[in-house]
Nucleic acid binder design. Structure first.
Lengths: 351, 351
DNA sequence: CTTAGCACTCAGGAAGATTAAGTGCTAAAA
DNA sequence: TTTTAGCACTTAATCTTCCTGAGTGCTAAG
């Protein structure tokens, strides 16, 4: 649906005014403050039209208008002009991400941190989807008397690792054999493929060597499960003081999002790569998110998924600024990862 | 300060009534519902006395009384009778903790989970203080082309681990040498001791072998830092619907506690071992906690710290029930850990 | 020492009035 | 035909006033 220029300018004005105040916007306000060259009456008529077309909403009959999700969508896609980052902002981002990062997992957290700081919303960082990763290396490490650490290095650089109780029936000298065997039979294989029928790949020799490899095999399998994704959030506090949080349920919904993390994982999974994705209110299926906007930016290098950074804020977001910021941060991050050569999924979060 | 029996019984009644309703309690309510055998007038007088003594507070002059922190303190220490857990509750706890837990880090999380479920408050689980731990074993594991995993096993069973970029100037054949050397020179040493002057312990041979071991040494050091403690929470949502959260600041304070975690770490550090510790409102120094009670139970076996489980809730907690619950869960947990032989501090959180 | 009785206090809610912001529509102006 | 001034109308929000109910402290009688 196309809008004529006047409608666009009015919609833009309403959105900017509403973004600034969080209050329904009236026609006179627009007429006075945004000299568009029309009287309040004309604007009033146009606002009525825009409402009919679905771009604006009216909380009640004698109130001003607020933008609908569709209104924001149109604004983002067809009206707003992205605001370039200031030299200063770029410097801050470059500065923080430039530091010689030895701990790779710190990188994505840092990026998330910057996002929260620069935007004043809550930022998220989500580990990569492992579904399509291939096993690059498996290491079994004996720890102390009774534990075994299983480490899987994936071809996207992510590391999954876990510790199980070392069972006495699994003789020490076999660990090396297992290690070799596991690498031999699983290297280069797809995570999902292994997960679906690990026994097929492993049964022959492994079960021959020792009767009690079941815990090991189980845990190995667990590490391959796709759902096993880490979520970080920063700046959740930033959202608490927003006026939209005054509505009873909004806050509860938000805390639900934080606590369950399901919605976040799901959105991160779906996000189209190489692009900043914006989900406004009802645009995503999660009831709890209906009053929020989520922006995600999936990080990818050479077809390898490296995780997702993102932002959560009110629908009334400063999109003009926020989208370029996340784009810039993501691009710097990917650049940095390319140099670093690998990415750790953050499951090893020694500070 | 001792109270006569009548005052005790009235204080107890007020606390129980207030716990149930979260509303100031009046003298007639007590007289009618808790047949203590005194008229409301007598109770009124006693309540005035109890207020003067600091055990009760009055929100405003024509309102009933609410228990002060001191009142709760006295109630816990000298009045209440702990309520035995029902057979059912014990079963639930035993059941969940009885499962054959292969993943040791799951254990403390499970315990925390149970606490949240059984009490309907928010539960916490905090990794062990490592200050007084000794190094039991160090492993360096090469991962892929360019990374090195450092794993430290401590004598309390905790495992600290981290990954650094593997530097080309650190030849592969040296890793084994390093490994041997690090174990040789650091095994049995106190974390804190090493941290304070790691170079003294490591410099000689290590720096001789390769010029660029600095990242490795730094990271090793990082892993020893005391502050590097993991905090889990469950059931934070449970607290949102409490009437006390209606007061603007209480909720903010709560979210602050969750987000910063400082207060939690601090309290876990200080808690006296082998006992359930209760911190009511202002009894702990953290401003944000002034409207909450925190209960901690430090887990210890043979002088080895294994972390802390705990609860956060309103001051108006059901102490009679909650304290035995946390005690029971903690004891079962310690029993379980004793069998398991070791405890993983949860930094390896593959689900 | 206990309690009945009573005057007093005060938060919270209901009812009503007022205000301010904004609308839609009509008719005049451009 | 489009724009705009003008105006009647709507409604949420706020303020005021009044009232009620829960609770108190104190006094005097039991």
């Amino acid at each position: 649906m196309l809008l004529d220029d006047r409608k666009k300018r009015i919609l833009e004005a309403v959105i900017e005014e509403y973004n600034a105040t969080a209050e329904p916007v009236g026609s006179t306000k627009i007429a006075n403050d945004y000299n568009l060259g029309f009287s309040s009456a004309t604007i009033r008529n146009e606002m009525a039209n825009l409402e009919e077309l679905g771009y604006l909403e009216q909380p009640h009959i004698s109130a001003g208008r607020i933008p609908s999700s569709q209104g924001y969508r149109f604004y983002i896609d067809s009206i707003m002009q992205e605001k370039n980052l200031s030299v200063q902002e770029k410097q801050i981002i470059d500065e923080i991400l430039k530091e010689d990062v030895i701990k790779l997992e710190t990188l994505i957290k840092d990026a998330s941190n910057i996002l929260a700081k620069l935007t004043n919303y809550a930022s998220i960082a989500i580990g990569p989807q492992m579904t399509n990763c291939k096993v690059e290396e498996i290491k079994l490490v004996k720890l102390g008397q009774d534990r075994l650490m299983i480490v899987i290095l994936a071809d996207n650089g992510a590391i999954k690792e876990s510790i199980i109780k070392y069972d006495g029936t699994l003789p020490e000298e076999n660990i090396e054999i297992f290690n070799t065997y596991l690498n031999h039979s699983l290297k280069g294989m797809n995570f999902e493929e292994i997960y679906n029928n690990i026994n097929a790949y492993v049964e022959n020799e492994l079960y021959n060597i020792s009767t009690n490899v079941i815990p090991l095999v189980n845990e190995l399998n667990n590490l391959l499960v796709d759902n096993n994704v880490e979520v970080y959030m920063e700046g959740t506090k930033n959202l608490l003081s927003l006026p939209e949080m005054k509505q009873e349920n909004t806050l509860k919904n938000f805390l639900n999002i934080i606590e369950t993390q399901d919605a976040l994982k799901e959105l991160a999974k779906n996000g189209y790569d190489g692009n900043v994705n914006v989900y406004i209110g009802q645009e995503n299926a999660f009831e709890d998110l209906k009053d929020f906007t989520i922006i995600t930016y999936k990080q990818k290098i050479n077809d390898k998924e490296l995780g997702t950074i993102g932002l959560i804020g009110p629908k009334r977001m400063d999109y003009k600024k926020v989208i370029p910021v996340i784009k810039y941060v993501g691009d710097v991050l990917q650049e940095k990862m390319k140099q670093g050569g690998s990415f750790d999924d953050g499951q090893n979060n020694a500070k």
